[in-house]
Nucleic acid binder design. Sequence first.
DNA 1: GCGCAGCCATAAGCCATGCTTGGGCCATGA
DNA 2: TCATGGCCCAAGCATGGCTTATGGCTGCGC
Lengths: 319, 319
Amino acid sequence: MTSIPATGPDDPSALDPRRLLILRAVAQAGSMSAGARALGWTQPAVSQHLQALERSARTPLLLRHSGGVTLTEAGRAAIVHADAIAAHLDAASREVAELAALGAGTVRLAAFPSALAVLVPPALERLAATSGVEVRLVEAEPPEAVELVRSGDVDVALTFGYAESPGVPSDLRGVGLGTDPVDVVLPTTHPAADRGDLRLADLADDDWVAGCVRCREHLVACAATEGFTPRVRHETDDYVVVQQLVARGLAVAALPRTALAAYRHPDVATRTVEGLGARSLHAAHRAGVERVPAVSALLGALRRPARGGTTRTRTGAGA
Amino acid sequence: MTSIPATGPDDPSALDPRRLLILRAVAQAGSMSAGARALGWTQPAVSQHLQALERSARTPLLLRHSGGVTLTEAGRAAIVHADAIAAHLDAASREVAELAALGAGTVRLAAFPSALAVLVPPALERLAATSGVEVRLVEAEPPEAVELVRSGDVDVALTFGYAESPGVPSDLRGVGLGTDPVDVVLPTTHPAADRGDLRLADLADDDWVAGCVRCREHLVACAATEGFTPRVRHETDDYVVVQQLVARGLAVAALPRTALAAYRHPDVATRTVEGLGARSLHAAHRAGVERVPAVSALLGALRRPARGGTTRTRTGAGA
DNA sequence: GCGCAGCCATAAGCCATGCTTGGGCCATGA
DNA sequence: TCATGGCCCAAGCATGGCTTATGGCTGCGC
């Protein structure tokens, strides 16, 4: 694969686009001197450029006469394309500048359900208030979300991790978005629901409903520290389903507060217990993308104190 | 008028078109190294160019990761225009090269009637045989033809001149196309028609029909040298009309051989006399245009020995 | 698990591009 | 006839930009 390209930039017969633009400026100005003034250069500089351009064109592009220059047929042909090049160059500069200034751009964000419900909406609201960045959302649990980042299908993935399992794989980069304490969820009728000094071990004989693999592993690990192995009867990621099961008295569960902020069943009680720890929240992305303004803005919006559940502060009726 | 242009090439936020093309090559190749190989450069050269491009863009255009690079949104936006720029650059190069290689182009030629009838057709035939140059013809007597060159309405003017009046004005350039001897035109019934040693003064008592101003002036000047003033009864540029008048015995005349090659009335005799001289034929043009290939080719075709009247050498029956 | 290969970034050096100043020629117009 | 304005040329110099050399990082294969 050492083939030489058909017409590379070093092709002697290829025209230098910058010199075409100089030709254009001169043609518009009517003379090399006027063109040079418009470009902020001296006249010999422009003259040399155009001589070089004509040398590579192997034909005169303009006729010099007292009072200025006029285009030859070849010069007119070149100018047509120079105009188009100038237009595209201008468009490219404007579009890129707009992306750089946060006036445009879209970021694809993958997030797990509770984050999507609680963390993301206020962040998007802030983002929309201060920029023209658009965000496309994809719901995905951390493993899939990470894979979407790796494949380039999304730019940022909201993930979580526990002490024993990192939230951001080593081949990606990420920023921490704080911790999300895990609480115990009990039926309101559960004897331990009102217990003053509740410990995790107090629930060693209960049936449990667990979530994703890592959540269950975390639960099991915490329980092991407390000296028991939880009986996991049911498995579901869905925090609504979990609470429905708990409310019916079918099991107890451990849910992060974010999930509880997204949805809270009236017939469950939540208790903070020692030894259940917290999950850490992360925004994972490929190295380098954090320098993209739109991504950086989204990360910044996510990092703001989004605590406060789903309450949206808006103009309107106060509390 | 020392105003700075709104967005000149030295605008720091403007993107360098050459660097956009480098970005394009890298994006197509998949990595800076491969792009550098395709461009015939080393990897650091490309890397530095793209860093400079991103600096002027004020946002990353591509993400570096092991195995190569991928475009960011801004990079994709830039590439779209880079593709267009590359296409226009290629089109400009091809069109200009075609004009330089005589594969295309049009030259506008003004000529006086007898040249248009005798000199031009064989020249155009030769030109068409060896190039794709097209010629647009305009009939104009030398004064108007010169004016058309000055105004830029034509590229080349075929003109003639006499010893006392140049064929090419000093503000234009031109090439000589040879001389065109002026002969006397007599009715075949004229007593001098068969005279052995005919001199111009022998026609001092005849009525004359003269052509354009300079032709008449030339005739008058020649006659003055011979010691008489011709009686100019009629005036017309048209060499057919002149010969019609002569054939009827209404006058004698002086006509260039080119005009006689274009049309020869059967009832007139032509005689070469001392002291009538010749007119010189020229191709006049603005300084510099002779370097335009199409113009140069036309001038070359005109300069060939076009003598031989209107006879065209073609494949077919020989003499 | 470890070395290797590929890729990109950086540093230093050097050459050439390309800009500037100064001067000259030419054509135009007062 | 001179003054003006345009383009070209020559010479000098600075900067841009390419090269070589090196290092860090990642991912893959043994």
